[in-house]
């Protein structure tokens, strides 16, 4: 197996960072709860690309096993998110996050 060059690693890291930033911007700007949750999922995928690129760079499996755990935890969070979205939609018939801002101060 060929070693990965530093230049190749930086490309993957740049991709990971860009995905992470897209997710972060989406999290800040979107108002629909499902879109907000998808934004956090995009951030997770950016992290996963980082981990896999580093795993290939260091030629060990730690990063890959980390990604498997990351995906299963993300799935657990997704199920919780959908349950929460259904619960909130039944209450207010809207998924706009601004409808849920009664507490102030």
């Amino acid at each position: 197996m060929e070693l990965m060059t530093n230049a190749a690693l930086y490309q993957y890291l740049a991709l990971g960072a860009v995905l992470f930033t897209i997710g972060l911007v989406g999290f800040m700007s979107r108002r629909n709860m499902i879109m907000i949750f998808l934004s956090t999922e995009i951030m997770f995928q950016g992290v996963a690309i980082n981990l896999i690129a580093f795993a290939r760079y260091h030629l060990n499996a730690d990063g890959q096993s980390f990604v498997i755990f990351l995906l299963s935890v993300a799935a657990a969070e997704a199920s919780l998110a959908l349950a929460l979205v259904v619960l909130l939609y039944r209450r207010r018939q809207t998924l706009n996050i601004d409808a849920w801002s009664e507490m102030q101060g």
């Binding site: 999290f27 949750f37 992290v47 580093f54 935890v73 998110a81 909130l88 996050i97 507490m103």
Partner: peptide, 27 residues
């Protein structure tokens, strides 16, 4: 439920942020 939704979404964001840090520490 408003508290729950705020807590959950910010929680997911924070997980992504510290995981990003973990990936760099691993790297």
């Amino acid at each position: 439920q408003e508290a729950g939704v705020k807590y959950f979404f910010l929680g997911a964001l924070s997980v992504a942020i510290f995981l990003f840090g973990f990936s760099y520490l691993y790297g």
